[in-house]
């Protein structure tokens, strides 16, 4: 599904700012990959580059999604093709209601694929259902997008979006940071319930604790812009015990 070959990226318009220095991973349908690494290793850059954030420039390598090179595509088209990024720090957008925003997202996707748009009634039903199952405060969700949400509430809102947009590939950028155990469980439940043979996840995390709830198929250790080790779920436990020092 996702093939990343020798991916090199730097901060756009800044010289000698290489962050990713040749990342290779291959994610097959149905797999959950965890990308772990110490602070400053390039984890967040990697997830943002996958989604096409304009702040970064890809200097070399390939990102191939379902057989198509997507490096030139803007974020909205990557979204239409089935990619999703759950943000580490979701931004607050005053005056934009989550309901309206998600309906517009689905409509844009339908339009892109030449499909008919979901009706308001159908969407409202879906929305209410998911608000409930994601444990999102129904009063909060009537307000502006992420505006005045606590850290945990923002992450729940990311999971709500994930469940409504139902992407093929979901990238979770340190979604677990700042979450209490209950919220962590909600994120994990969300991922586990959406797990299917044709949906994949790339979970970027500093700590192993989220992986207590979501069992990854493959764990990569990213250090200084390169994958230095790849293994199974046991690798994460290893890191938990010994830290990243063995890989640096």
């Amino acid at each position: 599904m996702l093939k990343v070959k020798n991916l090199c990226a730097s901060v756009a318009d800044v010289e000698d700012s290489d962050i990713l220095k040749g990342v290779n991973i291959e994610v097959n349908p149905g797999e959950i990959h965890a990308i772990m690494g110490p602070n400053g290793s390039g984890k967040s850059t990697f997830s943002n580059v996958l989604m096409g954030r304009p702040d970064y420039e890809v200097t070399d390598g390939e990102i191939n999604f379902n057989g198509e090179d997507i490096i030139e595509l803007p974020a909205d088209e990557r979204s239409h093709k089935g990619m999703f990024l759950a943000f580490q720090y979701p931004v607050e957008i005053p005056g934009v209601r989550p309901w309206q925003f998600l309906k517009a997202s689905l409509d844009a996707k339908s339009e892109y694929h030449g499909e008919s748009k979901i009706s308001v009634r159908e969407f409202s039903k879906l929305f209410d259902e998911k608000v409930k199952s994601c444990g999102v405060n129904p009063e909060l969700i009537k307000r502006s997008l992420n505006d005045g949400f606590s850290g945990g509430e923002k992450k729940r809102n990311e999971m709500l979006q994930l469940e409504i947009l139902r992407p093929q590939l979901a990238i979770l950028d340190e979604t677990d940071s700042g979450l209490d155990v209950d919220a962590l469980r909600i994120v994990a439940d969300g991922v586990n319930s959406m797990r299917s043979p044709d949906r994949s996840f790339v979970i970027v995390t500093h700590y192993q604790r989220l992986l207590n709830y979501i069992k990854p198929d493959i764990v990569h250790i990213l250090v200084d812009g390169k994958i230095v080790k790849t293994g199974n779920a046991d690798l994460a436990l290893d890191v938990e015990k010994n830290g990243y020092k063995d890989f640096q």
Binding site: A75, R78, F87, L106, L165
Partner: peptide
Amino acid sequence: KLFYLMSRGLS
């Protein structure tokens, strides 16, 4: 903000 909304499919 732009990237956040675009990553959800808005042009």
